[in-house]
Design a binder for these strands. Structure first.
Length: 424
RNA sequence: GGAGAGAUACCCAAGUGGCUGAAGGGGCGGGUUUGCUAAACCUGUAGUAGGACGCUUUAGUCCUAGCGAGGGUUCGAAUCCCUCUCUCUCCGCCA
């Protein structure tokens, strides 16, 4: 969310941002409501001032045992008027809030201009794409043959986009979680948290999932509860409505969690395999930093995520996301995509964003640069470090052998009891 | 799930309708005394949000709101009433 004052004073800039992001919001109505609110507020505050003074007077008169009925009846009228105008102000604020929540973050000036994923810019890439001397199989075929993925059982028990991992598949998933957590804890100095998977509405608003993207989330029936679409939501909201001390920053958290997504707009896409599931595992990195550090921190965040893929020796590329593909809350974003032989392309396994103060403002997360200083909003960042399910799929595809077996990446073997291969 | 008790500023805490725009204490900041420290004494300490005017060789002044949240009663609410949230204690149940 942007500050109302900021929007009021930078209407053109905000309009430009809306264009670049391909978003819409009724700025004209916002300005009208804002003006109406301020006018009414000024008047009603004058009345309240009068009332406060009169109340003191009444108290004084009553203490002296004198008659105050005249001034009381006068104030009865004033109070009724105040009540009415308060209601008017409240209505304006409701409309303003509604529009304000529709306005996306302003893109960073260096974010490439563009309308959709076609316009994303290749930033850099790593690793050699393997040449196969046979036709590589898709991970769902490999997984079924190895009896480590069971799509039928997933569909039977829970429906489409749910899958059972079995035996060494389940172990591989667990090993990756452990492996990634260890790297970020021991080599990158993140602090681990294990968050709740269910949050209430305020938390979803705090990080920007709501109110705009209600249909993407799973809501629990009969309660104001949502299943988290990413650990970003609970971990960022840990610090909601807080003023941090300067020396607490930067805060770097790593959190493993399951993630739940309705995938409402994705009918027919990635219906096979485990690329797009309603429930998947992810190790997430979340940072709270001083504003002046946030872009350095973003670069480091991407590097931290990349290390995982480098250690697993999976070839990947990094995309600098264009303005149209930045999403609602990000000012700048890099996606990391790993190579999938069967798709003959790269698929996203991580998305690293700098939200600047957009989330911090919604969630009211501030810090004091000096003990005496006025509180400022922090900058928040997060990125996957990385998505587990897609990494499993990538390992199956990239490490497959002619006989249908799959080699375990060396870095992962300590987490698999030294196992070097999954065989049919 | 049942019964009860709570929520007041950085912390503890007083406060049942106007003299509380929040006593008192602790902590923290400043000062006096002092060779230094400590002690004692004096003194400051609502952070925030919003608005009006001012400033932009940058600086404030005033107003409004704010005692867990939201409503209500009242000329006036920390105080009375209603709803909700959270915390604690005991019982039950459970991993």
């Amino acid at each position: 969310m942007l500050y109302l004052t900021f929007v009021r004073e930078n209407v053109e800039l905000v309009k430009d941002a809306l264009d670049k992001k391909g978003a819409e919001a009724d700025l004209d109505e916002l300005i009208v409501q804002d003006q109406k609110r301020r006018d009414t507020l000024y008047e009603v505050e004058q009345l309240k001032h009068r009332r406060n003074e009169a109340s003191d007077k009444i108290g004084e008169l009553k203490r002296k045992g004198e008659d105050a009925s005249e001034i009381i009846s006068e104030m009865q009228e004033v109070s009724a008027q105040i009540k009415e105008m308060d209601e008017e102000v409240r209505e304006c604020e409701e409309k303003i809030e509604e529009i304000l929540l529709q306005i996306p973050n302003i893109p960073h000036p260096e974010a490439p201009l563009g309308t959709d994923e076609e316009d994303n810019v290749l930033a850099w890439q790593w690793g050699e794409v393997r040449e196969f001397n046979f036709k590589p199989q898709a991970h769902w075929d490999l997984g079924e043959e190895l009896d480590i993925l069971d799509f039928e059982k997933g569909a039977k028990v829970s429906g489409a986009r749910f899958t059972f991992l079995k035996g060494l598949g389940a172990k591989l998933e667990r090993a990756l979680i452990e492996f990634m957590l260890d790297i970020h804890l021991e080599e990158h100095n993140y602090q681990e948290v294990f968050p709740p998977y269910i949050v209430h509405r305020d938390s979803m608003i705090g990080t920007g999932q709501l109110p705009k993207f209600e249909e993407d989330a799973f809501k629990l029936e009969g309660a104001d509860y949502y299943l988290i679409p990413t650990a970003e939501v609970p971990v960022t909201n840990m610090y909601r409505d807080q003023i941090l001390q300067a020396e607490q920053l930067p805060i770097h958290h790593v959190a493993y969690s399951a993630c739940f997504r309705a995938e409402a707009g994705a009918h027919g896409r990635d219906t096979r395999g485990i690329i797009r599931q309603h429930q998947f595992n992810k190790v997430e990195l979340v940072k709270f930093v001083k504003p002046e550090d946030s872009y350095t921190e973003l670069e480091k965040l991407v590097k931290d995520a990349e290390v995982i893929l480098q250690k697993l020796e999976l070839p990947y590329r990094v995309l600098d996301m264009c303005t149209g593909d930045l999403g609602f809350a990000a000012a700048k974003k890099y996606d990391i995509e790993v190579w999938f032989p069967s798709y003959d392309t790269y698929r996203e396994v991580s998305s690293c964003s700098n939200f600047e103060d957009f989330q911090a403002r919604r969630a009211s997360i501030k810090y004091r640069p000096h003990p005496e200083a006025k509180a400022r909003l922090v900058h928040t960042l997060n990125g996957s470090g990385v998505a587990i399910g897609r990494t499993v799929a990538a390992i199956l595809e990239n490490y497959q052998q002619t006989d249908g077996s799959v080699i375990i990446p060396e870095a992962l073997r300590p987490y698999m009891n030294g196992l070097d291969k999954i065989e049919p």
